[in-house]
Each structure stands twice: as C-alpha cells, then as structure tokens.
Amino acid sequence: MMCGGGSEVRDADDTVHKICETVKSQAEQQAGKTYDVFVAKKYMRQVVAGTNYFIKVHVGGEDHVHLRVFKPLPCNGGDLELTSMQKDKSHEDSLELF
C-alpha cells in the first residue's frame, strides 16, 4: 500500500470491530439517532500522518453507514476520531475513500 493510497477492501477483523465500538457514540451523535445494531462488515485503510480507516457498518435492516476514522501515530498520541460519515448506504454500495 502506498502512502496516501487506499488498501484493498477486507472483511472486518477484531481490530476494526474495536474501532467501531470506540466511535459508535460519535457516529450516533453525528447521525442524530441511536443504533441498536452497529457491526463492522468491511474496511480499507489509508496511511497518512496516522491511519484513516474507512469502514462499512451494518446499522440494522438493509441500512449501512460508511465511517472514516482517524487513528493518529502513537508518537503523536490522541484518540480515535470519527472524521466523516456517509449515511443511507446499502450492503451493495462499494467502500471508497472519502
């Protein structure tokens, strides 16, 4: 993977599930609602001055959201931050950099 480029899309793993758990409240605040279901399905990464995670999350029924979560470099400290969210997505929508 090239710096600034996106990785291939992969199935969500334990690391990505933990990231989703961490930013769920931020996502709910941005969406203005609570999610009973919030399960990561797919993800891709982008290496910048840290890592952007682009995550497809199932939020119930046929609904999905796409999250962009920034993880700073360990030397810079800081917490995971939900930097962008795309709502009204479906299972079929491809995960892309945004």
Rank of each mutant, 00 (worst) to 15 (best):
Gly61Ala: 12
Glu8Gln: 10
Met1Tyr: 10
Pro72Thr: 05
Thr51Asp: 04
Gln26Ile: 05
Val47His: 02
Thr83His: 02
Met2His: 10
Ser84His: 10
Met1Thr: 13
Phe54Ile: 03
Thr34Tyr: 04
Val65Asn: 08
Ala12Asp: 03
Met44Ser: 07
Tyr35Cys: 04
Leu73Lys: 15
His66Thr: 03
Gln26Arg: 08
Tyr43Ser: 01
Thr15Arg: 14
Thr15Met: 09
Glu28Gly: 05
His66Arg: 08
Lys41His: 09
Gly4Lys: 13
Val37Thr: 14
Glu28Ala: 06
Asp36Trp: 06
Glu92His: 08
Val69Leu: 11
Glu96Leu: 12
Tyr53His: 11
Glu96Asn: 12
Leu80Asn: 03
Glu62Gln: 13
Ala27Trp: 00
Phe38Ala: 01
Val9Trp: 03
Ile19Ala: 00
Gly50Thr: 09
Met2Ile: 14
Lys18Ser: 14
Ala31Gln: 14
Phe70Thr: 00
Ala27Met: 01
Ala40Pro: 11
Tyr35Phe: 15
Val57Asn: 00
Gly50Gln: 09
Glu28Leu: 07
Arg68Gln: 15
Gly78His: 09
Met44Tyr: 05
Glu81Met: 08
Ala40Arg: 04
Val23Phe: 11
Pro74Ile: 12
Lys56Tyr: 01
Cys3Ala: 12
Ile19Phe: 07
Ala31Asn: 04
Ala49Arg: 08
Leu73Val: 10
Val23Leu: 02
Cys75Gly: 00
Glu81His: 07
Val47Thr: 10
Val39Pro: 00
Asp36Leu: 12
Asp93Phe: 02
Val48Asp: 07
